[in-house]
């Protein structure tokens, strides 16, 4: 029971309190780049959930059984990047064969996940916080859900902002950055949230 509570805590933390984008400021580039339309934002979020979850699952045994016994903790970053890049490649090939429609929909965003620092962030934090396998995967998946939540919220705001009258110098990207910071401020309100 205690463990389930802890899992809930991790999930809530990853989605709301320590949201990867809005509180930890990781993965900002896809957040700004793919948030023009809710539809694409949704697709990107789904892909990130998948990659984050699988990356957490794959990196845990590599760290546990390969790096730690050989005293190679300093190699974590390099190894994780290698794993994530291969993983994304693999997912891309798999999707192209198995679900071509999803592959077409995600388009260029799928390979872009390779450079999404939120994915690297989640696996590095897994080792930092010394999570076990279950906790790592939970943190990865819920971190992805947090990413999805943030990017879909932001995309909805941006779709509305298209119609707003903005000063000339603020049109487009600048006003989007301001909106992102306000959204981030709003998420700061969750920082007091605790399950117990």
């Amino acid at each position: 029971m205690n463990q389930i509570g802890e899992l809930l805590g991790i999930a809530l933390g990853a989605i709301l309190v320590n949201n990867f984008i809005l509180s930890q400021f990781l993965g900002i580039c896809p957040f700004m780049g793919v948030s023009k339309k809710v539809e694409t934002a949704l697709g990107m979020g789904m892909a990130v959930i998948f990659v984050m979850g699988v990356a957490s699952a794959v990196n845990y045994p590599i760290n546990k059984f390969l790096l730690m016994p050989n005293d190679l903790g300093f190699m974590q970053t390099v190894t994780y990047i290698l794993v994530i890049a291969s993983l994304v490649q693999f997912v891309e090939m798999f999707l192209q064969k198995a679900v071509p429609s999803l592959y077409e929909a995600l388009g260029v965003y799928l390979p872009l996940i390779t450079t999404n620092c939120a994915v690297l962030g989640v696996v590095l934090q897994n080792t930092q916080k010394d999570y076990n396998f279950i906790f790592s995967v939970t943190y990865g998946v819920t971190g992805g859900i947090g990413f999805l939540l943030a990017i879909v919220l932001f995309a909805s705001i941006r779709e509305r902002m298209e119609f707003a009258v903005t000063p000339k110098s603020f049109e487009g990207f600048p006003i989007a950055l301001v909106a992102a910071s306000l959204l981030s401020l709003a998420f700061m309100g969750f920082s007091g949230l605790k399950i117990w």
Partner: peptide, 22 residues
């Protein structure tokens, strides 16, 4: 370690590209 990982992942990807070739 890194070399082995690279080779393993490379092999998996090469295999996958054959299996999942469109």
């Amino acid at each position: 370690v890194l070399g082995v990982l690279g080779i393993v992942f490379g092999a998996i990807l090469a295999f996958a590209s054959k299996v999942f070739a469109v």
